[in-house]
């Protein structure tokens, strides 16, 4: 038995090292003047300093934050309203809403982006706006995750009974839904929103195909920067990866908290 765990630990260490090397190497690379020999030379944080004073980078960061928030808020509202109507009034339609929400799982970002682009580019009206296309595309890409998060949340609370109870106390169904049901599924919505943030934050293909370089997020910025200065790009890389890890850590933390909360209330 002892031998087995040792073997397992060795495998874990090997895979762990393999996975961490690229991160570690690039992080070290970003903190030195140059690395052309065996060891890097000249420790410095100036790449970071220049980045944070550069307008272009800050605007890329700002763009990224905006383009993460807007589609997520829209999608959450759309799915909440749709699920409210469907579960309360049209239970037979629920199946179709589910199918529509799950389809994006199977279509690749490349195909979604080019199909939206080819359909609406050059058309008249609001749909010709690249930002509208981009937000629409992101809404579709994150739809399965948001739907799953909200659906799981609704399954965990006894929605029909709580709505009945609210109604008997004089609340309308819509009021009951937003004041009684939604507050109880907030944690599920938070987790799936964070997953969605991770997806949009890491996206390159949709934004590149739909808006090109006219609307830069940090991924586009990294792409352009690595063509000119790899040291500066490595600092961008570190910032991107730190943010990504922060999001993942937050998701894990919230999930654990929820799992513990469930276990606690199950004990009673």
């Amino acid at each position: 038995m002892k031998k087995k765990t040792t073997a397992a630990h060795i495998v874990i260490i090997l895979i762990g090292i393999y996975l961490l090397i690229p991160l570690f190497a690039t992080a070290v690379y970003s903190m030195f003047e140059k690395w052309t020999g065996l060891l890097p030379e000249g420790f410095s944080v100036k790449h970071y300093l220049t980045l944070f004073t550069e307008r272009e980078f800050m605007s890329a960061l700002f763009n990224t934050v905006i383009i993460c928030i807007v589609p997520i808020v829209i999608t959450i509202l759309l799915v909440l309203l749709a699920l409210f109507a469907v579960t309360v009034y049209f239970p037979r339609l629920e199946k179709y809403v589910q199918i529509l929400c799950m389809i994006p799982y199977t279509i690749q970002g490349v195909i979604l982006s080019v199909s939206i682009l080819s359909l609406y580019a050059g058309s008249k009206g609001i749909l010709d706006n690249r930002m509208v296309m981009l937000v629409g595309a992101y809404c579709i890409i994150i739809l399965p995750y948001i739907y799953q998060g909200i659906r799981n949340g609704l399954n965990a609370v006894n929605m029909p009974m709580l709505l009945d109870a609210a109604e008997m106390l004089g609340a309308s169904k819509l009021y009951g839904f937003f004041r009684v049901i939604v507050p109880n599924i907030i944690s599920g919505i938070t987790v799936s929103s964070l997953l969605a943030v991770g997806i949009i934050f890491g996206d390159y293909v949709l934004i590149r195909n739909i808006t090109g370089t006219s609307f830069k997020n940090v991924q586009i910025y990294l792409f352009l920067e690595m063509k000119s200065s790899s040291t500066k790009a490595s600092a961008v890389f570190v910032i991107i990866m730190m943010t990504t890890f922060l999001i993942t850590a937050l998701v894990l933390f919230l999930k654990n908290k929820e799992a513990k909360g469930r276990a606690k209330s199950a004990e009673r």
Partner: peptide
């Protein structure tokens, strides 16, 4: 239902958990 002025107690877990 909200205008009927009727009170109702359900099976367990009908309290609003939040």
């Amino acid at each position: 239902p909200k205008d009927r002025d009727i009170g109702m107690v359900f099976q367990q877990y009908s309290l609003f958990p939040n």
